[in-house]
């Protein structure tokens, strides 16, 4: 059996042991997660494995096969240059399939005045980019991929992993943020170009500080600026679709989600540019009581 190298990573309430056949993959992670808390005791929730697709492919046209404690049978391997993406996908997979301590919503989240703004939608909606931008403009970044809804209190638990910027968001954020917070540019991934961005130090330091959800947006990029109300049935259905563990949580998930839908105001938001979206969000935020 070939040797594995590993690093333990703590993000919010979850800890991952990312094990890789390539030392270089571990050192990239070590560097990018350098300002996250160190896991001293090696006790983790999940193991992610990054291995060559076939043993002899460790060096020849190497490709990374993603697996771990929880895995999907048909996950396609990635080229070795994209090992960072593979690690992030591996961690996402563990959360999506294995995490039960919160209701997971496929949503980004930011916080201001102790209250959380959540944004959810299909990929391309801009939810990840918007959270990254707001995180540099006076909001606390809480997560760009999963919003963790506490099952008993209804609060949002931060999960601020590296932000995964895609395509046009990459140059936009490079204008806002110093270069030393970026990971390598990954070109030609299944999702286009990807570059990882470290959240601000303060967002990482406060990743155990919860916030009460105050507004949920369904952003949609590329349409004339508009706000629309949504019916509770539509919201409920779309959130069950946006949750990876709603069914797995049974009655607990049902209670948490119905409570969220009852209590949290929701808007569908169309926008053409980041600036426009931020102006709309500022206005909505000011109108909240």
């Amino acid at each position: 059996m070939s040797a594995m190298h590993h690093i333990d990573i703590e993000v919010g309430p979850a800890r991952f042991r990312v094990a890789s056949a390539w030392r270089q993959a571990v050192s990239t992670l070590d560097q990018l997660y350098g300002h996250y808390p160190r896991v001293e005791d090696d006790l983790v929730d999940f193991t992610v494995r990054l291995e060559p697709e076939k043993p002899w492919r460790k060096f020849i046209r190497p490709s990374v096969h993603i697996s771990g404690d929880f895995w999907l049978p048909d996950a396609a391997p990635l080229p070795l240059q994209q090992h960072l993406l593979a690690a992030e996908m591996g961690m996402n997979l563990q959360m999506a399939l294995g995490w039960r301590r919160h209701l997971l919503l496929h949503a980004s989240s930011v916080e201001k005045d102790g209250k959380a703004l959540l944004m959810t939608g299909l990929s391309g909606s801009g939810k990840s980019t918007l959270s990254a931008m707001l995180g540099e403009n006076g909001w606390r970044f809480m997560g760009d991929e999963f919003a963790l809804l506490c099952l008993d209190s209804g609060m949002i638990q931060p999960f601020p992993r590296l932000i995964s910027l895609k395509n046009e968001a990459i140059p936009a954020m490079n204008e806002l943020v110093p270069a030393d917070r970026f990971g390598p540019l990954l070109q030609g991934t299944p999702k286009g170009d990807i570059q990882h961005l470290q959240p601000q130090q303060a967002a990482v330091e406060t990743m155990d500080v919860l916030a009460k959800p105050a507004l949920l947006l369904f952003p949609r990029f590329g349409h004339d600026g508009a706000l629309r109300n949504m019916g509770k049935s539509e919201i409920f259905v779309r959130l069950t679709q946006a949750s990876t563990n709603y069914v797995a949580l049974g009655e607990t998930g049902f209670r948490a989600l119905t409570r969220f839908v009852d209590e949290v105001p929701v808007k569908a938001m169309d926008y053409q540019s980041g600036d426009e979206a931020q102006a709309m969000i500022d206005k909505l935020w000011a109108e909240l009581r």
């Binding site: 042991r17 005791d41 090696d42 006790l43 983790v44 193991t47 404690d69 929880f70």
Partner: peptide
């Protein structure tokens, strides 16, 4: 079991 061994045991049990 030491702490690290717990993580290993859990991975094996899941597998």
């Amino acid at each position: 079991l030491g702490d690290g061994q717990w993580s290993e045991l859990i991975s094996i049990a899941r597998a």
